[in-house]
Design a binder for these strands. Structure first.
Lengths: 236, 236
DNA sequence: ACATCAAACAAACGACTGTTTAATCTACCC
DNA sequence: GGGTAGATTAAACAGTCGTTTGTTTGATGT
């Protein structure tokens, strides 16, 4: 681990656990290779669908390396999000600030929505099967009622999500907040389903519609969502 | 097994496999109890997140009963969909026919979308945590790139989905088909995410927005989607 | 009373699960 | 060189995985 200060004397097991919790900062190439392998395998097969041996084999690393660098399988997932989610959330906020500034404080709804969705669909390396591995993983976790998944997603994206809800509320003064919140939820659904790129819409449309094409997806998605957001508030 | 015609003499193993494949028709209460337990457990923890022992324990059934009634774990999932998906797809088609007839062949977009989404959010028993277990399971499988999940979802819902795409195309003659197909994809995303009811939007809105409330969800969702579908086609 | 057969059963199969141990290797500082 | 912290390793841990086995139960039809 990165900080191996005190070695034992007292309760070896618990002490070791604590030390491993705070794995971060420095790291060899093994750590990064594990993260990459886990990113792809978790995305394709889900957390419980992949064993540590599959990950370590793909990363060409010893089995114990995961416990060593990340403490546990759950710790690996947390570290993966810590490494991959932050750039996305930051780019979101950067784009929001950019379009807010360019519009003298009142950006167009389309630009806000684009700032929210674009980093999610474009950042990170593309996978051979279309789309981004981390996006797929996020989509998976988004349908997960499990506590760990919720906690990790909230930690990574709650702040930027709340900021964007505020931005949309400000951009649409005639729409009550509850309506905006529902519509934000529907937007999240469309976004996650596009990230998941499960192949279903390709099958339904003989390949004409491909969510793995991020540019085209955004091109269709933003006007669709904007129209939904702008529609009259529902009665009652 | 359901059909124990030829007892062995030849290769016992393969013969037994084949026999078990076609488990159906007759059934005791055990079969249904297994389906119910699997429905909830698969929905909460995913296919690979639950062991057969957990399912059989919840169903108060012997471990071997799953192999006996469904052949395998995958077979159990297929049987579950065969039992639960058909009523939803049928209700969809029924509602579509109903609103088509009521409008003399040209139903309003809102009614088409409602016919598509409503059965998914309302049919089946409600779970204590809000929403329907089978809906949650569908949402899970919808983000799954795995072959089995795709096959099962396609088998259950391809027909009705394609019929609804046609209905929407007919209802919106000024929107080109590719645009409709993209928007249908976004609708699926919103629908699945509502079914998943992961608790995220509740957390973001301090509980004001609750996708587990099917009536309210539909009430907000249909106008949102309709506005998106009706927005002008995107250029190029 | 006997035969038949779906249904349920305990027990075991080998393979795989996440995690831990202790030994080994590597590289840098004194 | 010696010392040592960090990284990596093989091996084993106790469980659980999905599946298969051979047998027993309980009801049905004859």
């Amino acid at each position: 681990m990165t900080a191996l200060k005190e070695h034992s004397s007292t309760s070896t097991t618990t002490a070791r656990r604590k030390r491993r919790k705070q794995a971060s900062a420095v790291s060899g190439p093994a750590r990064e290779r594990i993260l990459q392998a886990a990113e792809h395998l978790f995305a394709e097969h889900g957390m419980s669908g992949v064993g540590l041996r599959t990950i370590t084999a793909a990363a060409k690393v010893n089995l114990a390396a995961i416990s060593y660098h990340f403490g546990s399988k759950d710790g690996l997932l947390e570290a993966l999000f810590a490494a991959r989610a932050a750039p996305i959330a930051e780019e979101r906020m950067r784009l929001l600030a950019e379009c807010t500034k360019a519009a003298d404080g009142s950006p167009a709804l389309e630009n806000i929505l684009d700032a929210f969705v674009r980093p999610t669909l474009t950042l990170g390396p593309q996978t051979p099967q279309g789309g981004h591995a981390f996006g797929r993983l996020r989509a998976r976790l988004a349908t997960e009622p499990e506590r760990l998944a919720r906690k990790i997603l909230a930690k990574a994206f709650d702040h930027s999500s709340k900021m964007f809800i505020e931005a949309i509320v400000a951009a649409l003064p005639e729409i009550p907040r509850p309506d905006i919140e529902w519509r934000f939820h529907f937007m999240l659904g469309s976004m996650f389903y596009t990230m998941a790129n499960s192949g279903r819409i390709q099958a339904l449309t003989d390949g004409r519609c491909d969510p793995g094409d991020a540019q085209r997806a955004l091109h269709h998605m933003i006007p669709f969502l904007a129209a939904g957001f702008r529609s009259p508030p529902v009665p009652e």
